[in-house]
Nucleic acid binder design. Structure first.
Lengths: 146, 146
DNA sequence: TGGCTTATTTAGAACTATTCTAAATCTTGA
DNA sequence: TCAAGATTTAGAATAGTTCTAAATAAGCCA
């Protein structure tokens, strides 16, 4: 990522944090950087390990705190694909997660615009959509055939 | 539920279990009955508590084992709505879960038939869809307004 | 700037959800 | 009926997350 893009992300982060009543901290920046850098839907534990490389004193609880703050201020989404650890994703567009049950990889796909026009319980106020497709990715589907 | 419906469910259960290589057991029937009886998307813990009323010696591990068997033979779906416990649902139609973040209630809504026509990664073999909408149910949305 | 208030971080304990283990008990098929 | 294998059980172990209390850092106001 270029220096220009980094500055842009940092401004964006500071702004979003403060409008939700959070402070900017180096830990929050570090956690956000990790999530932006490798968009493979890491778990909190994976974010912790990656963040520790740059910031060895960061603690587990801080990573959870930072992730919560980032989710609450709308910079990151939580994704629950299966039993076990929650994953995190910086793609805030409406999109769908294709999850391979064999290798565990997750693929994002944008959704058609009218996608969220669906029948709704009377009076329900929708906030956000979680759409996942479980199955086998091309590679794993091929391996299984043979 | 009528006796007739119970027998039908039991036949269905035996058949589905055996085609997936599982045996019929009273515990599996009990767990399935619990899930069919009150369709409020209980967690494994809640299923355990309800099953214990009829079958006091049933153990925790057995409930997990039974739930896994029911999921694998296609009678029950797992639903991951948030961090924390997995919920279980006997509705095997393609449907969408509306989840109220305030009271925790979950509402099922059937999906339009063409709903799963969405862009897909090349070669992906889809198995099943998990579609959730998070927000506020009518009651909770009203309470919040005041 | 200095001091006050409050948010955040930290390590580690605690807790919740789930899986594992090994022994006992059932089921099924020969 | 017997052997092989599946299932159940209690309880231990593990994974993921949250809580706690003390230390530190940030923002605010005089």
């Amino acid at each position: 990522m270029s220096i220009g893009a980094q500055n842009k992300n940092e401004r964006h982060l500071t702004e979003k944090l403060s409008t939700s009543g959070f402070r900017f901290t180096p830990q929050r920046q570090q956690v956000y950087d990790v999530i932006l850098h490798k968009r493979d839907h890491p778990t909190a534990e994976e974010v912790f390990i990656r963040a520790k490389k740059q910031m060895p004193e960061i603690s587990h609880a801080t990573v959870y705190n930072c992730l919560d703050a980032l989710v609450k201020c709308g910079l990151v989404r939580q994704v629950q694909l299966e039993r076990g650890a929650t994953r995190f994703c910086p793609n805030m567009e409406e999109h769908c997660h294709y999850h391979c049950g064999a290798c565990g990889k997750v693929f994002d796909m944008a959704l058609p615009k009218n996608f969220t026009d669906m029948p709704q319980p009377k009076g329900f106020k929708a906030d956000h959509y979680d759409i996942a497709v479980h199955g086998l990715c091309a590679d794993c589907a091929n391996k299984r055939k043979n």
